[in-house]
Nucleic acid binder design. Structure first.
Length: 358
DNA sequence: TAAACGTGGAG
DNA sequence: TCTCCAAGTTT
């Protein structure tokens, strides 16, 4: 069979399968480019089931790109709280402003136009163009990588530029003129529900007849695994600092890890230093205040992508000084009942129940 | 090019 | 408990 014939077969079988097996997802009930864009940003490196509720909440609260653009970043971050990769939220805010200010309130419909938006790369531009505008644009996400590597038996590290080039070229050849968005969604759907990383359900796969990896019985070995670096553990001292029933919280710098989120003050423990010493030092360095460190409240373990932290949380009493923003953007004294108004990282939120109970 | 960037679910 | 990894982008 020639390549074009095989491509036609793949398209037809995949779309037929998709028509019968597509999950009912909220963003599949709309044609609104804003809603499609929002879903695609949220779905970056994030599973469907995690995104569902966030997506619905966002659209109810910010029904148009104008609402999104006009909302304060703090509102966006509070809605995004817990979804992770907060750069996405900050970039989305910028992108919404771009749409309203530079594109006359309409999302661009071309790949080039879409990729000008903050947080929209090659994948997301292709997804929006094909799904919202019917453009014959390819996409390559983790699912597509897995499916293509298996169907065409592609060996080698899929993250290298040469392999990426092959994958994008294949995806580009495969995506049909008719229903390009459905085809792209179908590829991802197949990867998410059938062609799993471990234990792929080949018996349920519409592409089994043309899957070279399956024919050779090596589907589990493709795509080739990328070696990961070890994750170091960081020891952090955290203070819940009280002053007349209120707690001191600070806002992190706008860029970098957890940028723009609120947190309880603290910092890394140095070797040879106790947690209590570290806490007093960090609070002095970052806020220029003196505190009394009382009892240990809780120890929180949390894993990030590239390191793990152990938060040693202490109840503290404010002693003296006026808090300064030396390593943060904003400072507030809040009642425990008001904590929920602010966007906190998940590791910090793990402290809330202990706090409100005690 | 490689590293930074969150979180929750699955095995 | 631990490792992998999921609809990637930016620097």
């Amino acid at each position: 069979m020639t390549d074009p014939d095989q491509y036609k077969l793949i398209r037809r079988r995949l779309l037929t399968w998709f028509d019968r097996n597509a999950r009912d997802l909220p963003w599949r009930h709309t044609q609104d480019p804003y809603a499609i864009w929002l879903s695609e940003i949220m779905l970056q490196q994030t599973q469907v089931e995690t995104v569902r509720d966030y997506y619905t909440r966002f659209l109810n609260r910010l029904p148009t790109v104008h609402h999104f653009a006009k909302a304060p970043l703090d509102t966006i971050l509070k809605l995004w709280e817990g979804l992770g990769y907060y750069t996405r939220a900050r970039n989305a805010h910028k992108a919404a402003k771009q749409v309203t200010q530079e594109f006359g309130g309409e999302f661009p419909s071309t790949l080039e136009g879409l990729q000008q938006l903050s947080g929209v790369g090659r994948y997301t531009a292709g997804a929006i163009a094909s799904i919202a505008f019917g453009v014959r644009a390819p996409i390559v996400d983790g699912n597509v990588v897995r499916i293509l590597c298996r169907i065409f038996c592609l060996h080698g590290d899929p993250t290298t530029s040469s392999m990426q080039k092959r994958l994008w070229a294949l995806a580009s050849d495969l995506v049909p003129v008719k229903r390009p968005g459905d085809f792209n969604e179908a590829m991802m759907e197949l990867g998410a529900t059938v062609c799993h990383r471990q234990s792929p359900a080949c018996e349920l796969c519409p592409l089994k007849p043309m899957c070279r990896a399956c024919q050779q019985g090596i589907q589990m070995d493709l795509p080739e695994r990328v070696k990961r670096r070890p994750r170091p553990t960081v020891q952090v001292a955290v203070g819940v600092i009280y002053k007349r029933g209120r707690i001191l919280i600070d806002k992190r710098p706008p860029e970098g890890l957890l940028g723009g989120l609120w947190e309880f003050p603290g910092g890394k423990k140095k070797s040879g230093e106790s947690f209590r010493q570290a806490l007093k030092r960090e609070v002095r360095e970052e806020l220029d205040i003196e505190i009394l460190v009382n009892k240990k409240l809780v120890v929180v373990d949390h894993a990030y992508t590239h390191f793990q932290v152990q938060l040693h949380v202490y109840v503290c009493e404010f002693v003296s000084g006026e808090p300064q923003c030396l390593a943060c953007t904003d400072i507030k004294w809040v009642l425990p009942s008001q904590l929920a108004r602010y966007a906190f990282p998940t590791a910090n939120r793990k402290i809330f129940p202990v706090l409100l109970r005690g």
